[in-house]
Computed example of a mutant assay.
Amino acid sequence: MEKAFYPCKYSALVEQYAAEYDLDPLLVYSFIRTESGFDPAATSSVNARGLMQMTEETFLWMRSKLAAGEKVTFDDLYDPAVSLRYGCYYLHLCLQRYNGDVATAAAAYHSGWGTVDTLLQMEEHSADGVTLQGFPYNQMHHYVEKITACYAVYTRLYGTNQD
């Protein structure tokens, strides 16, 4: 019954891009569930789009790194394959930048690298300058809690590895 609230929709695409970008598929499901509730037509109050809820600024940056020669537009994020490709790549970069720490990477996915990098320089938020121990902004704190709690449930329900 609980699995109905924690689905594994778009599994072929999730598995494909999780493998391509060295991500745990269960973490990807956690982001999709938190970001869009698995609604490919989701649009946020800041105009983030698709399953993985990417803003236009982030999309344009990701496109320059991932698909500079392709004719992919911001509107294409409503296509699950495009949203997952770009969102998984961005999540991969966040995890890579923040040494695989899910909470810090989630904060960066939500609030941007600049915000997280600034917080990492403050002793009250990071003892080591690499991972955040606290999330001082309410939205960021709530988001990180949702991602980590969701990931814990997905891991409990579906196992630690779906490779």
Rank of each mutant, 00 (worst) to 15 (best):
F38L: 15
S36R: 01
T58W: 07
L27I: 02
T55G: 13
L26F: 15
T58L: 04
E35C: 03
D24T: 07
G37A: 04
E56D: 11
L51C: 10
T34H: 10
G37T: 00
A41C: 05
R49M: 03
L51W: 02
P40Y: 03
T55L: 13
A48L: 06
L26G: 15
S45T: 12
S30R: 15
A48S: 09
R49T: 08
S44Y: 11
Y29W: 02
T58A: 00
D24E: 13
S30I: 11
M54G: 06
D24C: 08
V46P: 05
L51N: 03
G37K: 07
E35N: 05
S45F: 11
Y29N: 09
R33V: 02
A41V: 03
Y29Q: 09
R49L: 00
E56L: 15
S44I: 04
F31G: 09
A48D: 12
D39W: 01
M54F: 07
N47K: 10
E56W: 14
V28R: 00
L26S: 15
R33H: 06
S44Q: 08
S44W: 12
T58C: 08
E35R: 04
N47H: 10
R49N: 10
E57I: 08
A41R: 11
D39V: 12
P25Y: 15
S30K: 15
G37W: 00
Y29T: 10
R49V: 01
T58F: 06
T34V: 13
T55S: 14
M54W: 02
T43Y: 11
S44T: 05
A48M: 03
V46W: 06
M54T: 03
M52G: 00
A41K: 11
L27C: 01
D24A: 09
E57V: 10
G37M: 00
E56P: 09
F38I: 15
S44V: 02
M54H: 02
I32V: 14
V28L: 00
M52S: 07
R33M: 01
E35P: 05
E56M: 15
S45I: 13
R49W: 06
V46D: 05
T43D: 10
T34K: 12
A48Q: 09
E56F: 14
V28W: 11
T43F: 11
L27F: 00
A48I: 04
L27S: 05
A42W: 06
T55M: 13
T55W: 13
G50I: 08
G50E: 10
T34P: 03
S36Q: 05
D39G: 07
Q53S: 04
L51A: 10
L51V: 08
V46A: 08
Q53V: 02
R49D: 09
E56S: 14
I32A: 12
T55F: 13
L51Q: 01
G50R: 06
V46R: 12
I32D: 14
D24G: 00
S45H: 04
I32W: 03
L27W: 00
R33G: 00
T43H: 11
S36H: 06
R33C: 03
A48F: 08
